[in-house]
Structures are given as C-alpha cells and as structure tokens.
C-alpha cells in the first residue's frame, strides 16, 4: 500500500496525536463520563489505523509491529486476569472483588480497581483491532 498525498500526510500529522490523547482521556475517565475501555480502545486503534493508511506501510516495519501488538494484547488480558485473581487473596476472598478503597463518587481517583480494569481492557481492544487490521494489510503485501 502506497502512502497518500502531502495534504493527507500533513493533516494526519496534526490530528493523529490529538485522536490518540482523546482515546486515552476516554479510557481514564471511563468511570465518570460515557466511554470506558471499549470505546477508548477502539479510538486508539483508529488513530494507529489512520497513521498506517495515510503514510503507507513501508515506513514502519509492519511485520514487527504485528508481533508487538499481538504480544501486547496477550499481556493485557493476562494482567486483567491477574488483578481479578488478586481478589482471591484479599479479605473477602472473592474473584473480581473490588478490594481497593472506593473513594468519593465523581472524583478521578475513585471506584477502586475499575480504572485499572478500564486501562487493561482499553489496551487489549486497541491491540486486538490493530492486529486484525495489520493482518489484512500484510496479506495484501504478500500477494504482490
């Protein structure tokens, strides 16, 4: 896949970082405002997909990136499971127990482990969608 024109590349330069930061904002504020891990993860994946579509795939080494993102996804789901398992060793001894102090409703640092779960799910979804996209793109490259 070739890259696009100079106009598209420049606009992508300006916008891609903003989209990425917006995705991180959606993930971190998932317990206060609409959004959360799923929405933020898809937005972050969209930022990366925009980058690859605009610049073509000869700039970054896509094969390495694919392995990286699939490894990141496995790592995120492992962390999710580990934090859920950690609930077994706390006082209530329940899988998926919310063992951190809850804090006041409506503040950024509240809701116990839910923000952490949000971050893990966000990383997992973003890595999964980006891996899927890269798999289709690399298949196209092999055919030529």
């Amino acid at each position: 896949m070739k890259g696009m024109t100079v106009i598209v590349k420049k606009v992508t330069q300006l916008l891609c970082g903003i989209i990425f930061i917006f995705g991180i904002y959606i993930v971190l504020h998932g317990h206060l405002t609409p959004g959360g891990g799923f929405a933020g993860g898809t937005i972050i994946a969209g930022a990366f997909i925009l980058l690859v579509l605009a610049y073509g795939d000869h700039i970054i080494h896509l094969r390495v990136r694919k392995e990286d993102s699939s490894r990141l996804e496995s790592f995120a789901i492992f962390l999710f499971l580990a934090f859920a398992l950690a609930g077994m060793f706390m006082i209530p001894s329940v899988f998926f127990s919310n063992y951190y102090p809850l804090g006041a409703v409506g503040e950024l640092l509240s809701a116990g482990v839910i923000p952490l779960y949000n971050i893990f799910i966000g990383v997992e979804v973003a890595a999964a969608l980006f891996t899927v996209f890269l798999a289709f793109v690399i298949l196209k490259e092999e055919d030529k």
């Binding site: 317990h31 405002t33 959360g36 499971l81 919310n98 809701a111 482990v113 839910i114 779960y117 799910i121």
Partner: peptide, 21 residues
C-alpha cells in the same frame, strides 16, 4: 457499592466481571 459514577462501567467491571473476562 462500586464507587463508579457511570453505572454501565460499574456493571461491566464489578457486578458482571465474568462477562467482561
């Protein structure tokens, strides 16, 4: 119970964490 202002997130990650896993 969850400390989360967004009830959907609260259900997704606390009451019904198994679904999310």
């Amino acid at each position: 119970l969850t400390g989360s202002a967004n009830l959907v997130t609260g259900i997704l990650f606390d009451f019904r964490g198994y679904d999310t896993l």
